[in-house]
Computed example of a mutant assay.
Amino acid sequence: MPDLIAPAARLHKAWLEAHAEWGPGVHEDGFGLLPSDEVDSLAGFAAWVTRLADDLDPAKAVDAGGVPCTYRWIVEGDRVLGGIVLRRGFSEFVQWAGHIGYGIRPSARRRGLATWALGRMLDEARVLGMDRVLVVCAAGNVASVKTIERHGGVLEGIRDTELGPAPRYWIKIGVPRA
């Protein structure tokens, strides 16, 4: 059974295994990984995890243009399956990337994990008083489109970005979902 947890330094090895499945770079949305983060060493990894916790404080937030962020890792036992972030405000970065971003490691896909995790983060957004959230994905990512639409995402349009066309969906938050 999967769980959503706050990033934890104790999962260094497990996170590195998940990261290796994506290949080099910082492209796994939902983890808040920046090019300046050094995650290979235990000390660097612990510093990154601390930065993610600090991103809840608008005065310290470095991801999403200073917007506070709630990061959660999707885990099963001690295995990191993916990550998801709720960006709790609006900035130029959020306008581009959305309020919620997520990534599932390739070997854990097609299990409904993204749909499940998105639902949990929508619950978190509801508790925080957000009335709607923007979720953006790559145009060719059919699985993400289906995940977003399962949660009531309504297509605003498709914008061209430096990463290619990106469909933009708004999800209204209000009455708790069944």
Score class of each variant (00 low, 15 high):
residue 90 F to T: 08
residue 106 P to T: 00
residue 115 T to V: 06
residue 165 P to S: 09
residue 85 V to C: 11
residue 115 T to R: 10
residue 55 D to Y: 03
residue 68 P to G: 12
residue 177 R to M: 09
residue 117 A to G: 07
residue 68 P to W: 07
residue 61 A to W: 11
residue 168 R to K: 06
residue 71 Y to M: 11
residue 103 G to D: 06
residue 63 D to R: 15
residue 174 G to T: 04
residue 67 V to A: 07
residue 172 K to I: 09
residue 144 S to F: 04
residue 78 D to M: 05
residue 132 R to K: 14
residue 147 T to N: 04
residue 109 R to E: 11
residue 110 R to H: 11
residue 75 V to P: 00
residue 151 H to K: 05
residue 145 V to A: 13
residue 152 G to P: 05
residue 120 R to Y: 02
residue 145 V to Q: 15
residue 66 G to Y: 06
residue 71 Y to P: 01
residue 117 A to S: 08
residue 65 G to Q: 05
residue 57 D to C: 10
residue 75 V to L: 06
residue 79 R to G: 02
residue 49 V to H: 11
residue 155 L to I: 04
residue 105 R to K: 09
residue 166 A to G: 08
residue 137 C to W: 11
residue 77 G to P: 02
residue 157 G to P: 03
residue 169 Y to A: 08
residue 113 L to W: 03
residue 111 R to S: 01
residue 91 S to L: 06
residue 57 D to R: 11
residue 126 R to I: 12
residue 109 R to C: 04
residue 58 P to M: 11
residue 153 G to I: 03
residue 171 I to N: 00
residue 149 E to L: 09
residue 94 V to C: 00
residue 113 L to R: 02
residue 94 V to I: 05
residue 103 G to C: 07
residue 82 G to P: 01
residue 98 G to W: 03
residue 112 G to W: 08
residue 127 V to F: 10
residue 99 H to T: 06
